[in-house]
Structures are given as C-alpha cells and as structure tokens.
Amino acid sequence: MPELPEVQALAERMTADCAGRTLTRLDVLSVQVLKTFDPPVHALHGQAVREVGRHGKFLDLATADGLHLVLHLARAGWIRHRTSFPDRPPARRPGHGPLALRLVLDDGSGFEVTEQGTTKRLAAYVVRDPQAVPGVARLGADPLGEEFTPAALAARTAGVRRRLKTLLTDQSVLAGIGNAYSDEILHAARLSPYALAAALDEEQLARLFTAVREVLTEALERARAVGAADALKAEKKAGLAVHGRAGERCPRCGDTVRSVNFADSSLQYCPTCQTGGRMLADRRLSRLLK
C-alpha cells in the first residue's frame, strides 16, 4: 500500500504534470470506485487544476473553482501519467481489469488510476470540501507537519494502553503511516511493536518521535529522487530495513529479522534491537496449534 512518502511524491509529480491545465473529462471505468454522486463527475469537466495535495494517504486534486477529486489508492491502487489517450473513453467494464479511472487534460495527456487484484478497495470522491470525505475527516496529525511535536506525541500516548504497532497505523492518531513504515519506525526507535504506548518513558518517547520524523523524511527524499513514478514501489522496498525482510539479517546488529503473521497482514522486527532477544508469538501459528 502506498504510504505517506509515496503519496506525497505522487502528489508533487501530479502537480508538476497538471497544474494550470484543464480537466477535459474524467472517465469512470469501474463503477464501484466512485463513492459520491453530488457533485456529479461531469462537474469536474472543464475545470482548471490548481494543484494536487495530500491528506494522510489520500490524494486531493483541487480545481480553481473549488471542486476536489479525492483518491485513496488502498492496498493495490496506483496512478500513471500518460502523454496521450484515445479520443473516445473506453467502455465501462465493471469488475474486469485493473483500469478504474482516467483523467484527461486539455493537452491530451493525463492520468490512469489502476487497481490490481480481485479485492477492490480503491475509492474516489468528488466533493466541494475534502473534509466531506469520512476518511479525511478522521485523520490525526500529519507526522511531517508542524502540528506533530514531541509534546503532541506525548499527549497521544499518555494513558493509552495500545500496542505501538497498532497506535502508529491508526490514521486518527497519525495520518499516513501504514504497515511498512510502522515496522521501520519501531526498528529505528529500538522499540517492540507490542510495547504499550502508556508505558513509554521520556527517553523512549524521544526516540520514537525522532524515528517517525527521520524514517518518513528519508523515505520521502528517496521517493522524490526516483526518476519515474512506476519505480516508487521498488524504491520503497529497497530502502526498508526490516519490513518484508523476514529471515534476512538485521542491518544494525546482524540478528535474523523475524515475522509475526496475522489474518491479512504481518509485521517484521529484530529481536536483538527491539525485544531484548525475545521472540514474539506468531498468532497464525498459535491458532494452528490449538
């Protein structure tokens, strides 16, 4: 799933490609993607694009007249810039193929929004105010924004008896961090994913704050340096220290990176760096042994 660094890099690339141009048409090729009906899709036609911004993991294409096309790429969505398109929109094929939306600009260029796989969670909203999108309205502090400070982090963890992994991926707490970067942040901070937020002392909170800032800032810098948007996913994977690297060596201490598997996700960690050498129980294996 694209997380804050990749979504921010996409927003900046899209702004460079379309700011000041007019959106000629928005083709909806997968009907389940569109989550709103008022304003209608055609209200965007003929609108000048002002910029593409970001709210957490949401992209926000804002027009000069105040309409917004808000996109959430979910787990398997992606956006590609195209220099040209056919004159006619393709026929709708609900449930067939990865193409979900097509945005065509006045110079013939534009963007294709795709979603791989059979589970379709990509979402598009046409709204007058991004806060009208439920997921945007629930977002917490942006980890790279001015509102995220050591004091703000302390306030969000004080008395909270939740595991750090769960807390970091809660979009109502911190907006934009997902499964991959939460693993990377906890590894950088040398904290167990199962540690309770309320139990962190002042020094651990300082490490966590620094890790959030540094991991996301470095990932964003790498994403901005990638030549093509299609290479962002590969660049993300190449820059990860523990996430998706179960069985490999920890780059800090050389211990073996371990994994805990859940029904539809997993986390990775280094026992030496994060849990005092202790192995965390694999919940999927525990269920099989019952």
Score class of each variant (00 low, 15 high):
P2S: 10
L4W: 03
P5S: 12
P5M: 12
E6F: 08
E6Q: 15
Q8V: 06
A9Q: 02
A9I: 07
R13P: 12
M14T: 05
T15H: 07
A16T: 03
G20Y: 08
T22I: 13
R25S: 11
R25M: 14
L26Y: 01
D27Y: 05
V28C: 13
L29A: 02
S30K: 03
Q32P: 09
V33M: 13
K35N: 04
K35V: 00
K35T: 08
T36C: 11
F37H: 07
D38P: 08
D38N: 10
P39N: 05
V41R: 07
A43C: 01
L44E: 03
G53K: 10
R54G: 09
K57F: 14
L59A: 07
D60T: 10
L61V: 12
D65R: 02
G66Q: 02
G66F: 01
H68M: 07
L69C: 04
V70F: 02
A74N: 04
A76P: 02
I79K: 12
R80E: 09
H81Q: 07
D87I: 06
P89M: 12
P90S: 09
G95T: 04
H96R: 14
A100C: 01
L101D: 14
R102E: 06
L103S: 11
L105M: 03
D107G: 03
D107F: 01
D107H: 10
G108Q: 07
G110D: 14
E115G: 09
Q116I: 10
R121L: 15
R121M: 15
A123Q: 03
Y125F: 07
R128Q: 00
P130K: 03
P130H: 05
Q131H: 08
A132P: 15
P134K: 15
P134N: 14
G135K: 13
V136R: 02
V136T: 01
G140V: 09
A141F: 05
P143C: 01
L144K: 00
G145P: 06
A151W: 02
L153C: 05
A154W: 01
A155C: 06
A158H: 09
A158W: 06
G159K: 05
R162L: 08
R162Y: 04
T166I: 14
L167G: 08
L167C: 01
L168V: 02
T169H: 04
Q171M: 06
V173N: 14
G176Q: 05
G176T: 08
I177E: 01
N179I: 02
Y181G: 03
A188G: 05
A188T: 10
S192P: 00
P193N: 06
L196V: 04
A198V: 14
L200T: 04
A211C: 11
V215Q: 11
V215N: 10
T217L: 03
A219M: 04
A219N: 04
L220Y: 00
E221P: 04
A223D: 03
A225D: 15
A228P: 00
A229P: 00
A231I: 12
E235C: 10
L240E: 09
H243G: 14
G244T: 07
R245W: 05
G247V: 08
C250V: 08
P251W: 13
R252Q: 13
D255S: 13
V257H: 12
R258F: 06
S259G: 09
F262Y: 15
L267A: 12
C270S: 01
T272H: 09
C273H: 00
T275Y: 09
T275M: 11
G276D: 01
G277L: 15
L280M: 10
R283E: 05
S286C: 04
S286V: 14
L288Q: 05
L289W: 08
